[in-house]
Design a binder for these strands. Sequence first.
DNA 1: CGCTATAAATGGAACGTTCCAATAAATCAA
DNA 2: TTGATTTATTGGAACGTTCCATTTATAGCG
Lengths: 347, 347
Amino acid sequence: MASRAKATILDIAREAGVSKSTVSLVLQGSGLIRPETATKVRKAIEDVGYVYNRGAANLRKAHSNVIGMVINDLTNPFFAELAVGMERVFQAAGVVPFIANTAENPVRQEEVLKSLMEQGVAGLIVSPARGTTPGAFRRIEAAGVPIVFTMRRLPESRIPVIAPDNHRGAFIATEHLIRKGHCRLAFFGGSSDLVVYHERLGGFLEACETLGIPASDRLIVEGETGRKGGMACLETALAAAQPPTAALCFNDAVAFGAMLALRKRGLEAGADFAVVGFDDVAEAEHYSPALTSVAVDTAGLGERAAHVMLRMIQSRTTRAEDHIGAVSLVVRESSGPDRNSQVGDAA
Amino acid sequence: MASRAKATILDIAREAGVSKSTVSLVLQGSGLIRPETATKVRKAIEDVGYVYNRGAANLRKAHSNVIGMVINDLTNPFFAELAVGMERVFQAAGVVPFIANTAENPVRQEEVLKSLMEQGVAGLIVSPARGTTPGAFRRIEAAGVPIVFTMRRLPESRIPVIAPDNHRGAFIATEHLIRKGHCRLAFFGGSSDLVVYHERLGGFLEACETLGIPASDRLIVEGETGRKGGMACLETALAAAQPPTAALCFNDAVAFGAMLALRKRGLEAGADFAVVGFDDVAEAEHYSPALTSVAVDTAGLGERAAHVMLRMIQSRTTRAEDHIGAVSLVVRESSGPDRNSQVGDAA
DNA sequence: CGCTATAAATGGAACGTTCCAATAAATCAA
DNA sequence: TTGATTTATTGGAACGTTCCATTTATAGCG
């Protein structure tokens, strides 16, 4: 059944009674070939079960048609959505995105990048793993392969970044909580080795500053960025002498964790303690109580990143502008007013 | 900054004052070269910022080191977990898995497979998109590239499958519901174009048969396999003349949807209507109420699939045995006893 | 009819590796 | 010393494409 050796362009040429050059031309859809000849060749291709060898072609051609997407945590639905957005535009451009997962591991990331480079990718879209060293992309940059960062940026790097407006998102979310009457606020989860953390925390702090929440009434609890981290943060917060009545969480996963911990204590998010998330993953809407969260248009960011990448490839540059995506607050049930303040309002 | 043309093995040879063959040997870690020479070469490699061209190498070598993972829905956390399991074992074997998403679209799947083949993958692990035609993999099989299906199988195909024991999973879940006193049961979601559907539904029906639930007390509601589908199924079911009191759902997403619809009607899963899911995704445990579900050891199945793939590549065969993974029922809050029957029991 | 202009098809030299066969250098036995 | 053996290194021919420069066939025109 399986033909002995893989069929090549020469086998097709023989089969169709033409030269290899003609076959090559047909393969590329050149208009220089007489339609009948093209048909004949295409038939031969079908007959011998030929599969195009892109590796060989790339040896001559300048650029390949694959771009690599390097993602730090595929199990986070957030990144899956991002990937889906990118795929949409790449597909339309005839580019094939290969996704690789680094599982938040810089060593693994190094391997993955190396592999992708060896494969001759035309570009790289990456959400860098936590703990990536500043020099990790130097070689790739030197090789002239365009890179775009998504969602995360590296401390000192001139690689373009496509990310949501983290600062503003945190600001409006915090503002919302304060307007609801909360005056002892917490920021849950994340840690300072992530640039995103500083952006979001910065927005939180600026809102506090602007709207008159003194430093003594702010509680910052670092922690893991998953559910577990959120649970731990809540425990820590409630153990404080003057516990906060509301928290902005680093992301939705942390928020879910905090809500879970609340329920374990017999408390209800929204009624007893306000929780706001960040990212607005699909799940947020369906949670109970539904989670108030900062929406970042994930798929849109993915599309944007893909577009930027395509433009860089086309203009053979390694430079591009950052793109900061608009954010909006989606208010749901988890961010109720502060109980005491509510009473105060009513009085 | 970026070197003009890409450095090749010849540039290194010149730089190090040796021949290209020597460089090639060093690159492959051959023991035939004098350590000092190797060091010299490695330094040159570093100096010129060389990146290995695997495409060129594959032109001569028999096999590449990349295998493709073709997944039908990356946004389903279930598949992300599966991917993670596979990656673990591939990484250890020095094989690089590239993931591609088909978004449940057979046309997209076709393109993705073509691309992967052109890239010269050593093997393919695929969870076929719904509606895949039986002949979709014929060409790939003919080319002698090993394929393994995961989670889903195609109607008439001899390609090995790695999947959970769907029939048994559905059986024990149904048995559980019947033991809880339910005697009007429903099966929610999925449709008959999926082989998995028949397997799960089959288990459900066999349990009903065995444990004395007559056909008149079974309700089968086909539907989409996401939350939306689950909501619709529940509505349909409750509109029946003799509505069921419990449902086994095609998967957890459907179950979540059903629970959501229950809540919208002011009913509570577990207390008012029993819901059991399938797959036991991470979320099931954290839902409220926590979802009873059939656990399938997702990551384990991924690892198994990867192992089978590696063995096929090594022994250059395209044949392998199916592997049916053990399942177990994880009982949580969503599957309470039937109210009436509970009263009966107490009396 | 011969000549040019156009269209269609072709041969051959790359592209960056691997690997075999061959060479060169060093070591050893007698 | 000479030849045999081992150890390191090397040239060159593939591998399957693309694409430039040619060649060959077809048509157009006076």
